Computed example of a mutant assay.
Amino acid sequence: MAPSLVHLSAADGVATITLDSPHNRNALSRQLMTSLADHLAAAAQDPEVRVVLLRSSGRVFCSGADLSEAFSIDGPRAIVDLQRQIATLPEPVVVELAGPVRAGGLGLVGAADVVIAADSVTFALTEVRLGLAPSAISLSLLSRLAPRAASDIFLSGRTFGASEAAAMGLVTRTVPDDELAGVVAETLADLLKGSPQGLAETKRLVNGDLLNRIERDGEDAAQRSAALFASPEAQRAMRAFLTRDKPA
């Protein structure tokens, strides 16, 4: 049996979902995305769960798409579906960021309701450097970012920090690293004060534009992403990336 790459636990009204695939820095493989979707569905169906916390083990929150698998429409469609699932979950989804986020991982951040990041966390949308574009995850990111900020980070592929991410609307707030756990706990406690109906209906209200974009553009974004992954230029760049020596 393959080891579980995502874990779910529930206590005191909070379902905690932990990405735990350290061998590839929590890359969005088919197995990880399937398991994450299953755990999100389980949390939504649990009558005791009022809030969902999405976090990671290890040093990296998510390194993006698993490039070793990224040669079909299945991966981009799964990323679109995960963004839809997070945005439509009746419970608020809080993301705790203690480590870097790259490329496709930003789609999980963009779809979430509240994102708390440690000051040391960095972000980058590196697709442009591999002959790709952040097509599938643009569905949630373009709903969060100012147009100028989106152009900057989409086109440059540069690394930026947590304070800049907060200023552009990508994360809710940043805190010193040693205060992250405490602030996340306070955030969860505040959300637990809301009634289930109040939380679900308020989430539906604030996510209306995001969901409209996903429903309108989701399949087109997935197809464009798959076409780019399959292009000769991107395949050459990804093969070079996968075969180069990378630090442990």
Rank of each mutant, 00 (worst) to 15 (best):
V93M: 09
A118M: 05
Q85R: 07
A117H: 10
V60P: 02
A112W: 00
I17A: 08
G64A: 09
L40H: 01
P22W: 02
G64L: 08
F61Q: 07
T88V: 14
G58Q: 00
A41F: 09
A111I: 11
I86C: 03
P100G: 15
R77M: 14
Q31I: 08
R50M: 04
F71M: 04
S57Q: 09
V94W: 00
A44Q: 10
T122H: 12
P22E: 05
I116Y: 00
F123R: 00
L89M: 07
P90A: 00
A118R: 07
R30M: 14
L67R: 04
S56W: 08
L89H: 12
S57R: 09
F123L: 00
V52R: 05
V95R: 11
V95S: 08
V121F: 12
R30Q: 14
R50H: 01
S56E: 04
I73C: 02
S29D: 01
L53K: 12
E48P: 09
V101M: 09
V80S: 07
L67I: 09
V95Q: 11
L36G: 05
V114C: 09
S35I: 03
H39E: 14
V109T: 06
I116S: 04
L106V: 04
E91A: 15
D38E: 12
S63M: 14
S56M: 11
D20L: 05
H23F: 14
A70S: 02
V101R: 06
S120Y: 11
L28T: 00
G58P: 03
G64T: 07
G105M: 13
A41H: 14
L54K: 06
Q45S: 15
R50Q: 11
T34C: 08
D74H: 14
L32H: 02
P47M: 05
V93Q: 05
R50P: 05
L106E: 07
A70K: 00
C62S: 15
R59E: 07
G105E: 11
S120C: 10
L28N: 04
A118T: 05
N24F: 05
V114R: 12
A41K: 14
I73M: 08
S35V: 06
Q83T: 09
Q45D: 15
P76M: 07
A65I: 02
G104K: 10
R102V: 04
E96H: 06
A42F: 13
V49S: 01
S21H: 14
P76V: 07
D74K: 14
I116C: 06
G64Y: 13
S68G: 12
V93H: 10
S29W: 00
T88D: 09
V95E: 08
L82V: 07
I17Y: 10
A117F: 12
A15V: 04
R50T: 01
V101G: 07
P76W: 08
S72N: 03
H39A: 13
L67H: 10
G58E: 01
S63A: 15
D66W: 10
R25K: 13
Q45T: 06
I79P: 10
E48R: 15
V52H: 01
A65Q: 02
S72I: 00
L67G: 09
V49F: 02
S35W: 01
D74E: 15
D113V: 12
A112D: 12
G105L: 11
T34I: 02
